[in-house]
Write a protein that binds this DNA or RNA. Structure first.
Lengths: 227, 227
DNA sequence: CCAAAAGTGTTCTTCGTACACCCATGT
DNA sequence: ACATGGGTGTACGAAGAACACTTTTGG
């Protein structure tokens, strides 16, 4: 434990550990699931935990870039939707000492995550995780609160689908994320009125009426009206 | 620039600088103002900046405790409302190197901040600050976005008033924070219906009808309805 | 009686919710 | 023709916004 104390520099304090943790979420088999990876190093070695890692000062432009790098290295993902959740800190959360972890939420369609499942990450339904190391239980809880709360007021859940999707698929995702039933009719109307999506073709499945395929207009955005 | 590289420890990376910055807000002369303090040390020495400081690993239980300590040391404040905003990080935001700052928002009634004004902190209307050091302009912008956005859906703005207050005072604070005019009638009704405040006496001023004084019931809370 | 702030009531419109109904397809 | 999911229309109530009005005080 080095202390960095050089009396010539009045502000040379011991620097805490700084890491990034990512709550990587996807929907699989109709359930919201979180990607966990087995820890390879000492504290809690061998236990499943949120994907994360140390900031690489030389490599990462900022913490979000670090989160992106972690996702690429551990789950083979590129250009995933990422947003900062909060920073969790304290003297006790890591046995190695005072630490802070900048937590991010990432959403990805299952198809893109599939190759990594088994090869580095395991998928666990969010309501079946228990006893994660560090304060990862709390981080996950906060992430779910955010995602569920923001769901009804933003296009965030679209990030769990591919670039295009049908209305039914979209509805299903919103229902899964928020854990409630939504009225199909109102759902369609609101998405249309808010001008959030645009048509992008048709989907034909045997035995069914063809469905319009949509694409998100612009980036993930927030709005006032509730879905 | 020490590197902490001990080849025996596979995860001993260079630790970035970790600080806390507080966007301390109050209302004075009918305007939302932010407390700035003159920097005493080298990067940007002498310039006005958000109040902040290094994490003291031995002293601070966690980052929020660090923010509380900073508020006490620089503005003489205790038991102020604090909430985490976000963490701002990157290789370029601090000339000393890769750094992260955990930013907090603090709200305090002007009366409590008054003693410190001139003695350590300066008050500046939020729309008149420019060219703050580091990325403090951005932090302030984000803080304002949060406070304004959350305003209509929470009792957060009450923290800018003393323990008790009249409806008019409360209305004024909400209007100042959010920068809009609100209908007095609807405002009263909603606060009553949401059961957020309770009566706490009367206020008598010369030439005016006596006003009921209220007190917040419970902690700061969020709700669905808009004010 | 008047000014000024405190406090109440009413109306209009928007939006959330529920639900009934029609459409297009492959078998 | 019918089962299945795709898609539209309507009706009702709760909540937001605007505004008119009454009450209480000191001068």
């Amino acid at each position: 434990m080095e202390t960095h104390m050089k009396k010539t520099d009045s502000e040379a304090f011991e620097r805490p550990i700084l890491t990034v943790d990512v709550v990587l979420l996807t929907i699989h088999e109709g359930r919201l699931q979180v990607a966990l990876s087995k820890r390879g190093a000492d504290p809690f070695k061998g236990r499943e935990a949120l994907v994360g890692g140390f900031i690489h000062v030389g490599e990462d432009r900022d913490a979000e870039a670090c989160a992106a790098r972690v996702l690429k290295e551990k789950a083979g993902l590129r250009e995933v939707y990422i947003e900062q959740l909060a920073t969790f800190s304290g003297a006790d959360r890591d046995p190695r000492g005072w630490s802070a972890s900048i937590a991010y939420i990432a959403l990805v369609p299952f198809e893109r995550l599939k190759p990594a499942v088994g090869e580095g990450v395991a998928l666990v339904p969010v309501d079946e995780t228990r006893g994660l190391p560090f304060d990862h239980d709390r981080i996950l809880t906060e992430a779910l609160r955010r995602v569920r709360g923001k769901g009804a007021y933003s296009t965030l859940p679209t990030q769990l689908l591919g670039k295009t999707f049908t209305m039914s698929a979209l509805l299903e995702v919103y229902e899964t994320v928020m854990g409630v039933r939504l009225d199909q009719s109102s759902f369609r109307r609101k998405f249309a009125e808010l001008d959030l999506i645009e048509e992008a073709g048709e989907e034909r499945k045997p035995g069914r009426r063809p469905a319009t395929v949509y694409r998100l207009k612009g980036k993930v955005s927030t709005f006032d009206r509730k879905l």
